[in-house]
Amino acid sequence: MARRKPGWIPDQHGAWAMLTLPFALGAAEAVRAGVAGWWIAPLFAFWMLGYFAFHAASGWLKAAPRRRPAYLKPLVTYAGASAAAGVVTLALGGLGMAGWVLAYLPLLVPALWLASRRRERATLGGALTVAAACLMTLVLRFPHPQALLTAGPDAAAAALLAAGLFAYFFGTVLYVKTNIRERGSRAFLIASIGWHAAATLAAAVLAASGLAASWWTAFFAATTVRAAAVPGRGWTPKRIGLIEAGFCVVLCVCDLVW
Rank of each mutant, 00 (worst) to 15 (best):
W47Y: 13
M48T: 13
L49C: 04
L49S: 02
L49V: 06
G50N: 03
Y51L: 06
A53K: 02
A53P: 01
F54C: 05
F54M: 07
F54T: 04
H55Q: 11
A56I: 09
A57R: 01
A57L: 13
S58A: 15
S58T: 13
S58N: 12
S58G: 15
G59A: 12
W60S: 01
L61I: 10
K62Q: 15
A63W: 01
A64R: 15
A64H: 13
A64M: 13
P65N: 11
P65V: 12
R68S: 12
R68D: 02
L72Y: 09
K73I: 13
P74R: 02
P74Q: 12
V76A: 15
V76D: 07
T77E: 08
Y78I: 01
A79W: 09
G80D: 10
G80K: 09
A81K: 00
A81P: 00
S82T: 05
A84Q: 04
A84Y: 03
A85D: 00
G86L: 02
G86K: 00
G86F: 01
V87G: 10
V88G: 07
V88C: 12
T89K: 03
L90C: 14
L92T: 08
G93L: 01
L95M: 15
L95I: 14
G96L: 12
G96I: 09
M97Y: 03
M97I: 07
A98P: 00
A98L: 14
G99K: 06
W100T: 08
W100N: 08
V101Y: 11
A103P: 02
Y104C: 05
L105Y: 11
L107R: 02
V109L: 15
W113Y: 12
L114D: 00
A115W: 00
A115E: 05
S116L: 06
S116Y: 07
R118G: 09
R119M: 12
R119L: 13
R119D: 14
E120F: 03
E120T: 08
R121I: 08
A122I: 08
T123G: 06
L124D: 04
G125I: 02
G125F: 04
G126K: 02
G126F: 08
G126M: 09
G126V: 06
G126C: 10
L128T: 11
L128A: 09
T129H: 10
V130F: 03
A131C: 12
A133T: 11
A133M: 12
C134D: 15
C134L: 12
L135C: 07
L135K: 04
T137H: 02
T137V: 07
L140P: 00
R141S: 14
R141T: 12
F142S: 02
P143C: 09
H144W: 12
H144K: 09
H144E: 14
P145T: 04
P145R: 03
P145M: 07
P145C: 10
Q146Y: 10
Q146V: 13
Q146D: 13
A147P: 05
A147C: 08
A147M: 12
L148E: 00
L149G: 06
A151V: 07
G152P: 04
D154S: 15
